[in-house]
């Protein structure tokens, strides 16, 4: 098993004939993802270099292929429209890679597409190693195994995964939830899935400054995953208040979104916080060998 994505998941790419879309569709296809086609309005009837059918609308693509997952490579002004089209066509999981979507577009889409899970926007996608890859992650650094990985960022995820793989710690599913202030799927929503996934035996949560996703994840882990070995990391400890760092969502507002608050929350849940990415594999190995975490009161 894995979460959100396995080798049977039928995936389409919205924007499959664009530069990004075609490049990454090819990489997903070669990784072994069950890519069944793509959508570009006006290019219906064409076939991609991989022999995949191109459709004019998501509706046609879903009817013809039975796709359930859609990976969206559409420029920011059209991304909300692409997400609505996916929702109306019956897609159940949309992975939105696009960076720079207006916050209000995401607010409206997230508030009105109940029943469709959205990963992102502004995310690297997700991968269930050995099974399928949807997004822009470099597949070759991942290895199938039992560690679930959650992260808000792309290259930091690769850094951490690379370290895990080199330490012999393979991964069940890695989800890049995205760096925007409003995202479709939070850490907690991923943790609920990991909780019920038999393949996932341990977790790494890579957070960063801004918002309260890490605090909520820590509370969930403390209350609902008492036996799961978990290690956390919080990026941006040297960030100044009031300024976004790279990600629109990575911002400390007043006393809110500080690294201290996040680290404290993880530690209160009994989750060790690595001071640097290179410590994560050793910390995780120690947590795994120690077995059950000290039970924590779920009082906060």
């Amino acid at each position: 098993m894995s979460i959100f994505l396995d080798k049977n998941s039928k995936v389409i790419v919205q924007g499959i004939t664009g530069a990004e879309g075609s490049y990454h569709a090819d990489r997903m296809h070669r990784y072994g993802t069950n890519l069944v086609g793509g959508v570009t309005p006006g290019k219906g009837g064409q076939t991609t270099a991989q022999g995949l059918p191109v459709f004019d609308t998501v509706k046609e693509a879903v009817e013809a292929t039975g796709a359930t997952h859609s990976c969206i490579f559409v420029p920011p002004p059209f991304a909300a429209d692409a997400l609505y089209e996916a929702y109306e066509a019956g897609i159940t999981l949309a992975i939105c890679i696009t960076e720079g979507i207006p916050v209000h577009d995401t607010l409206k889409v997230v508030g009105t597409t109940r029943g469709m899970r959205i990963i992102g926007p502004n995310c690297p996608g997700l991968i269930s190693p050995g099974k399928a890859l949807v997004g822009i992650m470099p597949g070759h650094i991942f290895k199938e195994g039992g560690v679930g990985v959650l992260s808000r960022s792309g290259t930091l995820t690769y850094e951490v995964v690379d370290l895990l793989t080199r330490a012999g710690l393979g991964q069940s599913t890695c989800v890049g939830v995205g760096g925007d202030p409003i995202i479709g799927t939070t850490f907690v929503e991923c943790l609920r899935e990991f909780k019920n996934d038999p393949q996932t035996e341990a977790l790494v949560v890579c957070g960063e400054i801004g918002g309260s996703d890490e605090e909520e994840a820590a509370a969930f882990i403390g209350a609902h995953l008492p036996e799961m070995p978990v290690v956390a990391f919080v990026g941006g400890r040297n960030a100044p208040p009031g300024k976004s760092l790279g990600h629109a969502g990575a911002i400390i507002s007043g006393s809110f979104g500080t690294p201290q608050s996040k680290i404290k929350a993880f530690e209160a849940a009994g989750v060790p916080v690595a001071g640097r990415p290179s410590e994560i594999p050793a910390f995780l190995a120690r947590e795994i060998s120690r077995g059950k975490r000290a039970p924590q009161p779920a009082s906060f």
């Binding site: 808000r152 290259t155 760096g179 960063e208 990026g235 941006g236 400890r237 040297n238 960030a239 790279g246």
Partner: peptide
């Protein structure tokens, strides 16, 4: 959002916001 100055003397650059933040933390 990708550039921000501080008073120190170690210049940094990374590809990706998360890695760039982690790089600052590593220097510190």
């Amino acid at each position: 959002r990708n550039f921000r100055r501080f008073p120190g003397n170690v210049g940094t650059m990374a590809n990706g916001a998360g890695l760039a933040m982690a790089t600052m933390d590593a220097v510190s």
